[in-house]
């Protein structure tokens, strides 16, 4: 225990740097995933046939173990000389985020009270206005919940991405294992866990803030 505290005190800047790397890749991937997933989720509400296919595909993707997905992506991406490093990790995180984001956007918008939609139409809103002013605000809590799930998931997978050279806190764990340094492994593991729990907590607060008053 003392050793662990000593390790944290001594290697604080080094851990901090890895954490920033970690947050960078997770943050970039999650934002990209939102930019892709939310429009897809919205579009799917207009095409139930495609919705079935896409949601199924996304849920299959979720069952693929991350290290296996890296294992498959490396050979494929090495065709364009990007086998290891940032790109496969980034792509994997974006893919994993799709299920929670698409599914929650889709469900959130589908669950908007049809009477609200009627009322919006009755007020003479265009489809785009209705989407922007009525449907998205009401679906917001669910969309944010999806983003939160995706982010927490990505922080964990991001740790594994260290094995394919993407950096981040996983590097600490990996080097600890390689050097058989338990203290280092623990320091890395605890850091990742804390980041995940904190991210979950903060996003939960944001989710609450974004919930329109009066919506449930």
């Amino acid at each position: 225990m003392n050793e662990l505290i000593e390790y944290f005190v001594k290697n604080y800047p080094f851990l901090w740097g890895y954490m920033l790397d970690h947050l960078e890749i997770v943050g970039l991937a999650t934002i990209t995933a939102i930019l892709i997933g939310v429009p897809i989720g919205i579009y799917l509400t207009t095409n139930k046939y495609l919705a079935g296919t896409i949601l199924q595909l996304a849920s299959v993707f979720m069952t693929i173990p991350s290290i296996a997905l890296f294992g498959v992506m490396i050979p494929v991406l090495s065709v364009i000389n990007q086998g290891v490093g940032f790109l496969p990790a980034f792509l994997a995180l974006v893919l994993y985020s799709q299920l929670p984001i698409i599914r929650n956007t889709y469900t959130g918008i589908q669950n908007v009270d049809p009477q609200l939609r009627d009322a919006a139409n009755g007020l003479g809103m265009t489809t785009l206005q209705r989407l922007w002013k009525v449907e998205i605000p009401n679906a917001m809590p669910l969309i944010m919940a999806g983003v939160r799930t995706a982010t927490v998931l990505n922080i964990g997978i991001g740790a594994i991405a260290a094995f394919i050279g993407a950096g981040g806190l996983g590097v600490v764990i990996y080097q600890g294992i390689v050097r058989a340094n338990t203290t280092m492994v623990l320091a890395g593991a605890i850091s990742v866990a804390v980041v995940a729990i904190l991210a979950d907590f903060i996003l939960k607060l944001i989710q609450k803030k974004l919930t329109p008053k009066g919506a449930n």
């Binding site: 964990g156 740790a159 990742v192 995940a196 729990i197 979950d200």
Partner: peptide
């Protein structure tokens, strides 16, 4: 919310 790799470690 704790990543599986962390639990393993």
């Amino acid at each position: 919310t704790i990543p599986s790799l962390a639990v393993l470690a």
